[in-house]
Design a protein around this nucleic acid. Sequence first.
DNA 1: TGAACCTTACCACACCTGTGTCAAGGTTCC
DNA 2: GGAACCTTGACACAGGTGTGGTAAGGTTCA
Lengths: 126, 126
Amino acid sequence: MDALTIHEAAQTTGWSPRMLRYVERIGLIEPPRTDAGYRMYGPEELQRLRTLRELLDDHDVGLADIAFALRLRQEDALRGDVESWLKARPQRPETVSADDWLSWEQEKHARLLAATTTPTMENPAR
Amino acid sequence: MDALTIHEAAQTTGWSPRMLRYVERIGLIEPPRTDAGYRMYGPEELQRLRTLRELLDDHDVGLADIAFALRLRQEDALRGDVESWLKARPQRPETVSADDWLSWEQEKHARLLAATTTPTMENPAR
DNA sequence: TGAACCTTACCACACCTGTGTCAAGGTTCC
DNA sequence: GGAACCTTGACACAGGTGTGGTAAGGTTCA
């Protein structure tokens, strides 16, 4: 008497057996197997299934999102690239301090000077 | 002569105008507007569009994934919950040190004792 | 004023996500 | 040996993602 079968685990956690297989397939919860290949859900798996459900409900995210967060945690190159891309998002005046607003206006000047040879909007309305 | 229109920006970055609007809608790149509402793509936006393309291609991720990474960075509660859930993933003997394997076996004992009244697999084949 | 842009708001479509059901075959246990 | 499980694999389907169009109307500029 060691662990629950997939149907039992489903009943006690509120997931369906189908979804337990799905959650396993996308790499979120991979229960050990018996020699015959039967999934065995122990207390940790059951707990994780319940907290996973909470996570999804509380923040309105999907399983694919959590799977992506897992990728972020496991693939260093991916995490680095994503983080540096996000970090570079331009901070616009509305969202930053008065000091930053000043440098924003100066930077705008630089942008003007840096404008290229490509055809552009003439006299933009601001 | 300040910034490019959406069609010009599309041409120089390889995105379609349609996709530039989509990228804006999901919150990844929101160019400033003229008084008339025209999107103005400056050098930063163009650069970010190009690096975004690279990011997607290099790691085979989708725009929705990046949008989720942005949520993770902006919503503290979400990030905390996701991280603590992922951090708790069970380390199985195959992937950890001999010491941990020992405690794994002991823990298994605890699981046996904790087994509930629910019907369970009899004599699991390991 | 008219050509050539821009805007938003729809219709459309292929693929992915999340979920169910069913079939064909192996395992457990009495 | 047979009931009641388990396995994988397939068909199905709604809703979201990623992309294209097209229409109705405002803006820019020669």
